[in-house]
Computed example of a mutant assay.
Amino acid sequence: MPAGKHGISQSSVSTQPFLIMKVKYPALLASLFGMANATGQPVEIVRLGHVGPTSGNMAHYGKDTRNAAFMAIDDLNARKLVIAGKRIEFRLEVEDDAGDPRQGTLAAQKLCDTGVAAVIGHINSGSAIPASRVYRDCGIPFLSPGSTNPKLTQQGYKNTFRMLASDKALGAGVAAYAARNLKIKTIALIDDRTANGQGVTDVFRARAKAAGIEVVAEEFTNDKATDFSAILTKIKGKNVEAIFFGGGDAQAGPLLRQMHQLGMSDVRLLGGDGLCTSHLAELAGNAPALSRVVCAEGGASLASMPGGAEWKKRYDARFPKEYILFSPYTYDGFLVIADAMKRSNSVNPSQFGPRIVEANFKGVTTEIRFDEAGDLQAPAITLYSYKDGAKTPLE
């Protein structure tokens, strides 16, 4: 199958009928593409999959992680890895889930049928959780670089891993900061009813109440909404000190603008990683309420990541002004897969898959070690605010 830039397949899967068969160990199909390099050493093609929302209102997140997948594939191929006596050439298969659960499961099944050895993707929990069942059934490893809902790794699937902190850490961290540092006494909750939004809001609610913060209002929206005037008007009548929003930046931006329009710029907006992006200022039109935002992101700040600063320079040189949030975790996910392949001396998921949980790998983001559930053993979080419109780590 001919491949274009970044090793992405350019020909349609439907033109290769033997590829659309569902197989338990799809990486074995790679051997069908065996060839020899210039030195006569056999070359084996190994396909890795990436899924992200490259259309819809979350497209900026998905394009960011897709960029990291391009970088990872090219970096791995530059290393000219040899596994089981064969030079490995990685190819990338990319699918769009639009942040939608149904489209996510269809994308997952397509990648299984195409014959990928592993998948790194599905950044939102609503897509990742149902897709994880598909990958379990077809027997390939699945690493999510963005799904933070605890349910992802509570299903007991031995092939499923999370590359960053879960909502348990994010919601708890924001709640603790709100009570201890901001001295918040009353708060309203808004969530977008997605798996991610509900998950982080549920954790925040429990931890906030335990810390003595009174939840005086709970409102709900959806991940397509842009008009929050009715919700905010109801909340304004409660005289709350802060709002916790479980949702993404595409909604948080308009929410901040409308808070200012309703005279609520002195009310703090708190949230998890969904709204905690470098694009929030732009989406909020730099509304005054932006300066009152506090949000949490899984992992260390880029400047504090072991390889963050240098990696970001390379990313920006190749994809200027496209960095959002989850791309470093995506990049590390591909390297974790390659590391497991090397340690098992195999590109067969049945062989390298069980070795992923044994990872002890120094990535761009952190020292990557998983617990038995597939979560990081010591996930870090970072709290951020926005100073002069720039996302800035809190001390």
Rank of each mutant, 00 (worst) to 15 (best):
P328G: 08
A128G: 03
A380H: 13
E310N: 12
G49C: 03
K224C: 02
T186F: 01
V293M: 11
R102I: 15
S14H: 14
R369M: 12
L394S: 09
L383T: 09
F142S: 06
G237S: 09
M71Q: 14
A378M: 04
Q41R: 13
A296W: 00
P288D: 12
L256M: 09
D74M: 06
G62E: 01
V347N: 07
G308Y: 11
R91F: 04
S265H: 00
E310Y: 04
A210I: 10
L32A: 15
A252M: 07
A178G: 13
L106E: 14
I324S: 07
N345P: 01
A27Q: 05
F220W: 07
P150R: 10
D97H: 08
A289E: 09
N222F: 05
S278E: 15
G299S: 10
G62Q: 02
S350Y: 03
G40M: 07
V119K: 03
E367Q: 12
E358M: 10
D137T: 05
A289C: 10
F204I: 06
K183S: 14
G156R: 05
A303V: 14
T54K: 13
D64W: 02
A380N: 14
A287N: 11
I140V: 13
S9V: 11
I381H: 09
F90Y: 15
G253C: 07
T194A: 11
Y157S: 02
H60T: 13
A340Q: 06
D339M: 04
